[in-house]
């Protein structure tokens, strides 16, 4: 039998006019990724001042952070208040290798991945045995430990940090021009968003969500919850660390002041504001959190007041986030295969 009699097509959500529904159809389709990339690609054509390029590049790096934290918080349900620690580990690893050992920035990436994986294991090892509130507090502590360590070691340059980090270059071609650098970051961040989304839609990503929904039930179905949580933590650490490499390349200088608790809180805010667990949501959330203060520059002294007020308004009006994760599975993944026979077998 290949009938799908019991599988109804997804009902369009109530409310919204015909145009709204049409827009929703496009936004919910698999084209949303390419559309987003296209918008990112034409942005410099519309505005390409060095200032705008700088803001947009920062926003993209922030998107990468938010997508990484979304794996940990949005998918796996592990509240991490010290996420900036992994951002710092990546930035410092790459910065130290590039300035002290004169490695090209690209060559530091494998080392950054190794170090952030280790950092994920070291931080996650003891903390992931804890649940909810306790985990949040311990990750907060670890975040501060990393920052204070960077502030006090000589190899990390102490409070001044590391400066003179070279920009990205490929085969001798310098990519430091602000527009070129923007496009390089766009490609890398797009790949990171795609990669995170693919992990989310795999067996591993499902296991993350099972843990978020009910850790005991997940364990009963054979999900080794400790290992799977560790995988989420490591994935988050790698995404954060690679964002750190881009951060160092963009600013050419890093210091402990860039990796404070406020940074962790802002990334978390992007995730919550955009819609926990929703990839397009956290991308929008990250853009919102980074671009809005710039858009509000006209208000000068009242800028952050207006920013705070807008955040409160958004969360009151849309507590589920700007673009919440869908709870309804699209028909294309719910389809039975053409050879479906309906016969049950126990291996």
């Amino acid at each position: 039998m290949t009938t799908t009699k019991t599988v109804q097509p997804p009902k369009p959500p109530a409310g919204g006019g015909g145009l709204g529904n049409a827009a929703k159809t496009v936004l919910r389709s698999r084209w949303i990724g390419p559309v987003g990339l296209f918008l990112g690609a034409i942005a410099p054509i519309l505005i390409a001042t060095p200032y705008a390029m700088n803001v947009m590049t920062s926003a993209l790096i922030f998107v990468m952070l938010a997508v990484g934290l979304n794996i940990v918080v949005g998918q796996c349900g592990l509240l991490d208040l010290g996420y900036a620690a992994f951002f710092a580990v990546g930035a410092y690893t790459s910065g130290i290798l590039a300035t002290r050992l004169h490695w090209p920035l690209l060559a530091t990436i494998p080392a950054v991945i190794v170090v952030t994986v280790l950092a994920g294991i070291v931080v996650g090892g003891p903390t992931l045995r804890l649940r909810s509130d306790y985990l949040a507090i311990v990750t907060l502590g670890f975040g501060e430990i990393i920052r204070v360590t960077a502030n006090n070691l000589s190899i990390t340059g102490g409070p001044e940090g590391i400066y003179g980090i070279p920009s990205l270059s490929v085969a001798g071609v310098d990519l430091s021009n602000s527009v070129v650098f923007y496009y390089v970051v766009l490609v890398i961040v797009a790949a990171a968003v795609l990669g995170a989304n693919r992990l989310i839609r795999s067996r591993l990503g499902r296991a993350w969500r099972f843990i978020r929904e009910d850790e005991d039930a997940a364990e009963a179905m054979g999900v080794h919850t400790y290992r799977v949580k560790m995988a989420a933590y490591i994935a988050g650490a790698v995404w954060g660390g690679l964002a750190g490499v881009l951060f160092g390349a963009q600013l050419s200088a890093i210091s402990p002041a860039s990796f404070t608790f406020l940074q962790s809180a802002l990334v978390l805010m992007a995730v919550v504001l955009g819609g926990m667990g929703s990839t397009p949501g956290v991308v929008i959330g990250a853009l919102f959190v980074t671009m809005l203060p710039e858009a509000l520059r006209g208000l000068s002294d009242y800028r952050y007041f207006a920013f705070g007020a807008l955040l409160i308004i958004v969360m009151v009006l849309r507590p589920q986030g700007l673009w919440p994760a869908r709870t309804r599975e699209p028909a294309r993944t719910a389809r039975r295969s053409a050879t479906f026979d309906g016969e049950v077998r126990i291996r």
Binding site: R206, F210, D216, A217, A218, M221, G222, T327
Partner: peptide, 17 residues
């Protein structure tokens, strides 16, 4: 104890993990 926010199909896919 189902995974309440996840689609029904995903709940059963948990068995295949």
């Amino acid at each position: 104890r189902l995974f309440g926010d996840l689609p029904v199909l995903d709940n059963v896919r948990a068995g295949t993990h």
